[in-house]
Amino acid sequence: MLNTYLQTSPPTKFILIQDCLQEKAHPILNLLKNHHHKLNHDLSYFIFEGNYLKINATLSSQNIKCHNFTSPSSIEALEKDLRTKLKPNSVIILDSLVHLIYLYGLKGTYEMLNNFMKEIKDGQQIIGILHTDLLENCDKVSQCMEHLSSLSIMLDPLVSRVYYTYKKVGGRVFKQIEEYRIEGGQFVTEALKKPDVHKLVQDKINEISPELLTTFKIGLTDTEKESRDSLVLPYLPKDKDATTVEGGEIFYKFDEVDDWDEEDPDDDLDI
């Protein structure tokens, strides 16, 4: 499950979250923030986009230290800042990697992150947010960043699925697809369920049921069917034990060649 990989101990070194406008990375970030707060880890948020003061005001109340990278600075200065903020049990969030790439180029960003990754020790973590809809050639950048990451997460809001790749320290790689939903602001994932064939067939039958096509009632409930079956028509012979009624009586004699129509007249309705 994705939640297990997000909350491993020691933490996964580099988590890459690939989001889009329709489903932003915030629910996953909130999950990670809560997890690190519980463990008393230091969270540093490197802001490259938007209004720094407004974001800082929101995040400071959540006990997250913000660092302003919205004004011009060189990649060397950024690398130096990253190193000074990287202390034992610290987590650095880069929001967003696209802005970093636009500032320093893909090559520069990759090299800087690659050098930085070599220095990361157990207990430290980097979280990078990559907005996939801000890149002309998203696949190329995505592949480069996935190569660096230990856990790469991609959200697809169209089908509510999350695709992730987790690289174990030993070298094993897990690729999974899970369903996700946001429940009360919480990011919840669950394994894809194999559909039950019988249920699918039954659903399909129910779909074409005339009951669903009409605005009036066609079928009978079990009680109504029972009531119909228990009704004895007056012209049919009754049980011998039944008390005879004084007066006139109808005797119905079936023809030798039966004229009784046993076919259901509503058979063609497929009820």
Binding site: L21, D133, L134, E136
Partner: peptide
């Protein structure tokens, strides 16, 4: 093709913030 038009990128970048 596979390339996202620049006007869409520009617009998306504003929508994010």
């Amino acid at each position: 093709g596979d390339l996202l038009p620049k006007d869409i990128i520009l617009s998306n970048s504003l929508s994010y913030i």
